[in-house]
């Protein structure tokens, strides 16, 4: 029976130590949980941005869509700012599993927008450059009076190369969708551009091979399928293009592309 007494004896150094551990563990789990929730928000908003970008194909002013997407991604970046806030002073790898799905989805969205604007692959640096946050500091609790002018602090979030890779791997699926849509909408330039770009990404991934993280290998199969679909689409365009009687060529093109500025109109 003496155990019972001992354990509740709060003067026991063991119990005191474990009270500290309890605090430490609960704090960590709570933070982890908050990060999971923010990450889910990041995922959902990023996905919606991607859907929004696919809507570009047939609206009168694509630039509006791009701006809307930019605004949406600004919102996502605010969320990532919250993640950065939570991670302030932490080892980000300790909580990485909590927010990696959201970050990958963000990379997918932001690189999709970038491709549409610039027809190129956004770099990891460019992504990270947008993840710098200014925080108005709360007045330092110790010593300083309230009402004091608030300072600002720079907070950064660094996407890891793995998350970047995994996001880019998913991007290829969206590019494939964009390619098929383009063909359906009579845009014959975009598919060829996309097949070039996708092939570069594919070659990049095969160059990395199995040295990358395990999840990449899993996505490689899908990537290869997407590339196949895009190559098939280009093939079809070429084959059918071979049939245009020369004298008709002008007609066909004028009737199908006049209203589309090939550089900006459709994509």
């Amino acid at each position: 029976a003496q155990e019972q007494d001992m354990s509740t004896n709060s003067s026991s150094s063991v119990i005191a130590a474990f009270r500290v551990f309890q605090q430490e563990l609960d704090t960590k789990h709570d933070k982890y949980e908050r990060l999971v929730k923010i990450s889910r928000d990041v995922t959902i908003e990023s996905k919606r941005t991607i859907f929004l970008l696919h809507r570009m194909t047939n609206v009168p002013d694509p630039e509006d869509v791009l701006n809307d997407a930019e605004v949406k991604l600004d919102g996502v970046r605010q969320k990532i700012g919250q993640i950065a806030e939570e991670l302030r002073g932490e080892d980000i790898f300790q909580f990485h599993r909590a927010f990696t799905p959201g970050i990958q989805e963000y990379v997918e969205a932001v690189s999709f927008l970038h491709y549409i604007r610039h027809r190129s692959l956004i770099s990891l640096e460019e992504i990270n450059a947008r993840l710098v946050f200014m925080r108005t500091e709360k007045a330092d609790a110790k010593g300083s009076a309230e009402g004091q002018p608030l300072g600002t602090q720079v907070l950064t979030f660094q996407v890891t190369p793995s998350d970047y890779l995994l996001g880019v791997a998913d991007l290829t699926g969206e590019l494939m969708r964009m390619c098929i849509s383009s063909v359906g909408n009579g845009d014959i330039d975009t598919p060829f551009q996309l097949s070039q770009f996708l092939r570069q990404i594919h070659d990049g991934f095969s160059y990395i091979g199995n040295t990358g993280p395990y999840e990449v290998s899993k996505k490689l199969h899908t990537l290869r399928q997407s590339l196949g679909k895009v190559e098939d689409a280009c093939y079809t365009l070429r084959v059918r293009g071979s049939e245009i009687p020369k004298h008709m060529l002008a007609d066909v093109f004028s009737s199908r592309t006049t209203l589309i500025d090939p550089e900006e109109g459709v994509v």
């Binding site: 359906g184 009579g186 689409a233 066909v252």
Partner: peptide
């Protein structure tokens, strides 16, 4: 805004239907 569910997969198929029809129209046009 679809989730990654069967409907999304079906919707991805729509692009191919659009493409196929476009090809038919193209064939007729030329």
């Amino acid at each position: 805004n679809l989730k990654n569910d069967p409907l999304r997969k079906r919707y991805d198929g729509l692009k191919y239907d659009v493409k196929k029809i476009e090809e038919v129209v193209y064939d007729l046009s030329i």
